[in-house]
């Protein structure tokens, strides 16, 4: 059998290649720095680095937390129905 470390490395790096953030980098920069994001710029001036921006980022994505968890559960259950049933139980 192939060295488990090599198997793990190959798999994890393959998975990582499929992962893409849902936020465009330019939008992320604008949301955090306030530059180019009208809704945030109205609340903060220029390059304000206050925690308000962090809080706003958290709030804007927090709604997706449970939905994402449900999606992951659904995906896992499709691969392992018996385990999925155990989780549901």
């Amino acid at each position: 059998m192939t060295d488990p470390i090599d198997v793990l490395r190959s798999h994890v790096q393959s998975v990582a290649l499929l992962e893409r953030p849902h936020t465009d980098p330019a939008d992320l920069v604008a949301a955090i720095t306030g530059a180019g994001a009208p809704d945030i710029a109205n609340r903060s001036t220029g390059a304000d680095r206050s925690n308000v921006v962090a809080l706003r980022c958290s709030i804007s994505t927090a709604g997706g937390w449970f939905q994402k968890l449900e999606c992951e559960l659904a995906t896992a259950e499709s691969h392992f129905p018996h385990i999925g049933n155990a989780i549901s139980a």
Partner: peptide, 11 residues
């Protein structure tokens, strides 16, 4: 939630 963690990290 990876998006939230990444956003907070860059903040």
């Amino acid at each position: 939630d990876a998006d939230t963690v990444v956003n907070e990290t860059f903040t």
